[in-house]
């Protein structure tokens, strides 16, 4: 197990090196000169070339890359062209909100998705089943901003239970987390349902019944641990992409998370910030995957890491 984790972490370094090449080249492939961007189009040629020298843009490409990657792995993601803040600091400031939001919404998705999916499978072809399938379809297909506005209208405006926007502590994240969680819960419910339907047909479920176990026990103790295996993969993927920020929901609820930082940086062509964020997200995504794989070996004893 430990050897496996070390191996995975080493390969993670390889992945990040690949990512670093891509984000380094990104600056040089995208049209527009950063120096001109910073100084504006009326700057004198002298000022621009001086700025290029400060940014190191006059050096050969490979030298620029070595410096870039050296800084990256030393934890220096550069400095924002606009705010003058360290990119790393910007991300670290914004990240807690995004992480809390991601964790909260994945918990909501997991609880509701797995619960409803399991009930639907057990009650296959009944009204309950159809209702779950329909609701989950609604959850998947309803646009995030619409659900968000709907929730704000009821719970924040009419009932005044939550702040309408902004961050005033963890409870401000509940409505955005429900918004994100609903769509995910829909997908999780459908996946749990089909996975559970498959599991219910298995011989070992009949064995459990022949032993004299009650339905509740058969489903919970024998069915769910098997049915949940593919669901965990999906939860992991959802969590990974949520950690990269949820742009629409963060915008609607005026949350200062990673998603809104990305939007600001892209609209201003703040290259160091964009690069730093892509690198950071790649790191987070890879770590999430590793954790999901480790959870996998916990729930499925047939998977072994040596």
């Amino acid at each position: 197990m430990r050897r496996y984790v070390i191996k995975r972490l080493l390969s993670l370094v390889g992945t990040l090196l690949g990512v670093s090449v891509l984000i380094f080249l990104m600056v040089h492939l995208i049209p527009g000169d950063p120096a001109t961007q910073i100084l504006g189009q009326f700057a004198t040629p002298e000022a621009i070339s001086q700025m290029r020298a400060t940014l190191g843009l006059d050096q050969p490409l490979w030298q620029q890359y070595l410096r870039f990657v050296g800084n990256l792995f030393a934890g220096d993601l550069g400095t924002s062209l606009f705010t003058g803040e360290k990119v790393w600091d910007q991300i670290i400031n914004r990240f807690p909100i995004t992480m809390q939001l991601a964790i909260l919404s994945v918990i909501i998705a997991a609880i509701f998705g797995i619960l409803l999916g399991t009930i639907a499978a057990v009650k296959q072809n009944t009204i309950v089943d159809r209702l779950v399938v329909l609701t989950s379809l609604l959850g998947i297909s309803a646009p995030g901003f619409w659900i968000a506005l709907f929730l704000i209208w009821i719970f924040a405006y009419k009932l005044a239970l939550f702040p309408i926007s902004g961050y005033e502590g963890i409870h401000s994240l509940l409505l955005p987390a429900i918004t994100l969680g609903m769509a995910e819960a829909g997908m999780i419910a459908r996946m749990t349902r089909s996975s559970m339907l498959e599991v219910i047909k298995q011989d070992y479920m009949r064995t459990a019944e022949a032993k004299g176990a009650a339905l509740f026990r058969i489903i919970l103790s024998h069915g769910l641990p098997n049915a949940i295996i593919p669901v965990v993969t999906m939860l992991g993927l959802q969590f990974g992409s949520l950690m990269a920020g949820a742009v629409v929901v963060e915008t609607v609820f005026s949350l200062q998370g990673i998603g809104s930082l990305a939007i600001e940086a892209i609209s201003k062509r703040d290259m160091p910030t964009i690069q730093g964020m892509v690198f950071f997200m790649a790191l987070i995504f890879a770590l999430t995957n590793l954790i999901v794989d480790l959870i996998y070996s916990r729930i499925d004893p047939r998977i072994h890491f040596d």
Binding site: Q202, D203, Y204, R206, T207, A208, E209, A210, K211, G212, A213, S221, H222, P225, N226, I299, D300, P301, R302
Partner: peptide, 20 residues
């Protein structure tokens, strides 16, 4: 079931729960 009347099935390969 399982106490006074018990049963053995045809497929031992799939009749045991893989995760327990």
């Amino acid at each position: 079931r399982g106490k006074d009347i018990a049963m053995i099935f045809q497929e031992p390969m799939t009749s045991l729960n893989p995760v327990h």
